[in-house]
């Protein structure tokens, strides 16, 4: 079954039949966690780097912020039986979209999202297996639970991540 993950949301599955997909990743990050051994897969579509700008919102929906969404994503996967040693982590997005594309690289939300994401992985002792971040193009990201294949669609082109 095909599950679409909307903005500031996460979907987790243990079914080998499922496809998780999220559209229109701009400066947002799409984070994929996959454990082939436990057959656990999840896709997070997260918007902003730090929950400190609105802690109440973060309590309401942790998947809005990278610093609350990614730890929650990891915990949910562990709860379903995923093991740290088997986790494959992949990320896409963090682009410079709209006005940010005109301004300096380091002021864009996208690159901040990437930095906070890397920080959380480092703190949790996890490597990112593959990343397609930055640039100015929006992306669609999907995880096929049957094969573990992660695909990115951007500008009409499909590439495996």
């Amino acid at each position: 079954m095909r599950h679409t993950v909307s903005v500031a949301d996460m979907k987790l599955t243990t079914s080998g039949e499922d496809l998780l997909i999220t559209h229109s990743l701009g400066s947002c990050l799409g984070v994929i966690i996959y454990d082939a051994v436990a057959s656990v897969g999840a896709l997070l579509h997260v918007m902003l780097p730090l929950s400190t700008i609105n802690p109440e919102k973060a309590v309401d929906n942790p998947y809005m912020f990278v610093d609350t969404g990614v730890p929650r994503l990891l915990n949910e996967c562990y709860k379903m039986g995923a093991k740290k040693g088997n986790l494959v982590v992949k990320v896409a997005g963090g682009a410079k979209i709209g006005a940010a594309a005109q301004s300096g690289d380091f002021f864009a939300i996208g690159s901040r999202n990437v930095t906070v994401f890397r920080k959380i992985l480092w703190k949790n002792g996890l490597m990112c297996k593959a990343a397609d971040v930055g640039g100015t193009r929006p992306r669609t990201l999907s995880l096929d639970m049957n094969t573990g294949e992660v695909l990115i669609r951007s500008d009409g082109q499909v590439t495996a991540l």
């Binding site: 780097p49 301004s103 300096g104 380091f106 002021f107 690159s111 901040r112 930095t115 906070v116 890397r118 920080k119 480092w122």
Partner: peptide, 16 residues
């Protein structure tokens, strides 16, 4: 400097 603080120090520039 921004690149070093971001890559090695996991810090990012705040608003412009």
């Amino acid at each position: 400097a921004a690149e070093a603080f971001s890559t090695l120090g996991f810090m990012f520039p705040m608003d412009e």
